[in-house]
C-alpha cells in the first residue's frame, strides 16, 4: 500500500480528470444562475427561492388584467392593483433553483420528444446491427465456405475506415434517395456494424463446435442455431457490443446534425442541447446542464445494470 502510493495518486488524479466535468454538470444543474456566475454555493447551491424573470415578464399585468381583477381588490387604485398583481406573479414565478433548472429543461425544448427520438434511433440501430451481425459472425466463425477468409479480411479492412471519411458520400446517397430529415437517415447508415461482426465472430470462435453439432443433431436449421443457441450463449458479448453501440449513437452529435436540418421533430438529445446555447438573451447554464444530466442518466443506469448481467453472463454460462 505504502509502496504503491504513487500508483494510487496517478489513479486518483485520473479519476478527478474524468469525473470533474460530470461533477460540474450535476452541480450546475442544481444551482441558480447567480450562483453559477459567481461560482459559489458548493455542490448543491443554497437552494434559496429565486424568481424566474422571464416568467414574471410574461405575466406583466395589462389594462384588461387590472379591470378583471378589480372585483377582488375593491376600492383600490389602479397602481395598487397593478402592484398587487405583480407581487402575485412574482410569488407564482419563484421557485427553488433545482426545480427551475429541471422544469426549464423539459419546457424550454421538447426534451421528452428528443429522448424518445434518441431511444427510437439507438434501439433500431442496435436491433438491426444484431440482426445482421449475428448470422454474419456465425458464418465467419463456424461455417466452412469458399472465400471465408477473404470476407473476414474485408470486415477487418472496414474497421479501419473512419466514419467521417465516408460521411459526405453517405449524405449524398441519402439526399439522392430523398431520405434526409427522416428516421431512416439517422438509422440506415449504421445498420451494418463491422465492429459488431468482428466482436461477435471472436466470441463465437470460443463456442465449442460440439454445441453446434448437438443442435444440428437435435434438428435445428442453421438459422435456428444462430437465434436459439448462439444468441443466448453470446449474451455477455452482445451486452458489451450494446454498450458500445448505444453509447456511440445516443451521444452522436455529428451525424444527426448533418442529416437533420431544421426539422425539430427529429432532433436527438445531443441536438436538443443546442437549444440552451446562450444567444442574445443571456446564458442558460442551469437548464442546459439539467438537460445534459437527463440525457446521460439513462446511459449510466443502463451501463450499471448491464455490468451486473455482464458478470453473471460470464460466470453462469456453464460452458467449458
Amino acid at each position: 500500500m505504502t509502496k504503491n502510493w504513487w500508483k494510487h495518486l496517478i489513479l486518483i488524479v485520473g479519476t478527478i480528470v474524468v469525473l470533474a466535468p460530470f461533477y460540474m454538470m450535476v452541480s450546475y444543474s442544481f444551482k441558480s444562475p447567480g450562483e453559477i456566475d459567481r461560482g459559489e454555493g458548493g455542490f448543491f447551491g443554497r437552494q434559496e427561492m429565486m424568481v424566474d424573470p422571464r416568467c414574471v415578464a410574461l405575466r406583466q399585468p395589462n389594462r384588461a388584467d387590472i379591470e378583471a381583477a378589480r372585483t377582488r381588490f375593491t376600492g383600490q387604485a389602479d397602481t395598487e392593483i397593478q402592484a398587487a398583481l405583480l407581487a402575485e406573479a412574482e410569488a407564482d414565478c419563484s421557485m427553488r433553483p433545482v426545480v427551475f433548472n429541471y422544469s426549464k429543461a423539459f419546457t424550454e425544448a421538447p426534451l421528452i420528444l428528443y429522448l424518445l427520438n434518441g431511444v427510437i434511433v439507438t434501439v433500431s440501430i442496435f436491433l438491426i446491427q444484431t440482426l445482421v451481425a449475428l448470422p454474419a459472425a456465425y458464418a465467419l466463425a463456424k461455417l466452412k465456405f469458399w472465400g471465408r477468409e477473404a470476407v473476414f479480411g474485408l470486415v477487418l479492412f472496414c474497421l479501419l475506415i473512419p466514419v467521417h471519411a465516408i460521411a459526405l458520400p453517405l449524405y449524398i446517397v441519402l439526399a439522392k434517395f430523398g431520405l434526409t430529415n427522416t428516421y431512416a437517415a439517422l438509422i440506415v447508415p449504421w445498420t451494418i456494424s463491422v465492429f459488431g461482426i468482428f466482436l461477435m465472430r471472436q466470441f463465437f470462435m470460443t463456442v465449442p463446435d460440439d454445441l453446434i453439432d448437438a443442435a444440428r443433431m437435435d434438428g435445428m436449421t442453421e438459422f435456428a442455431i444462430v437465434w436459439r443457441v448462439m444468441l443466448p450463449t453470446a449474451v455477455p458479448a452482445l451486452l458489451a457490443f450494446a454498450i458500445f453501440s448505444i453509447v456511440a449513437h445516443w451521444n452522436d452529435y455529428f451525424w444527426p446534425r448533418i442529416v437533420v436540418t431544421g426539422n425539430r421533430e427529429l432532433f436527438t438529445p445531443p441536438l436538443g442541447l443546442r437549444e440552451f446555447k446562450g444567444d442574445g438573451d443571456g446564458s442558460f447554464f442551469g437548464p442546459m446542464m439539467a438537460t445534459a444530466t437527463i440525457i446521460v442518466t439513462p446511459l449510466i443506469v443502463a451501463f450499471l445494470l448491464a455490468q451486473r448481467r455482464f458478470i453473471e453472463g460470464i460466470t453462469l454460462s456453464g460452458m467449458k
Binding site: D210, L211, D213, T233, G318, M319
Partner: peptide, 9 residues
C-alpha cells in the same frame, strides 16, 4: 458428445 454439449442457457 464427449463435452456433453448441453445448451447452457
Amino acid at each position: 458428445f464427449q463435452s456433453y454439449a448441453l445448451y447452457p442457457h
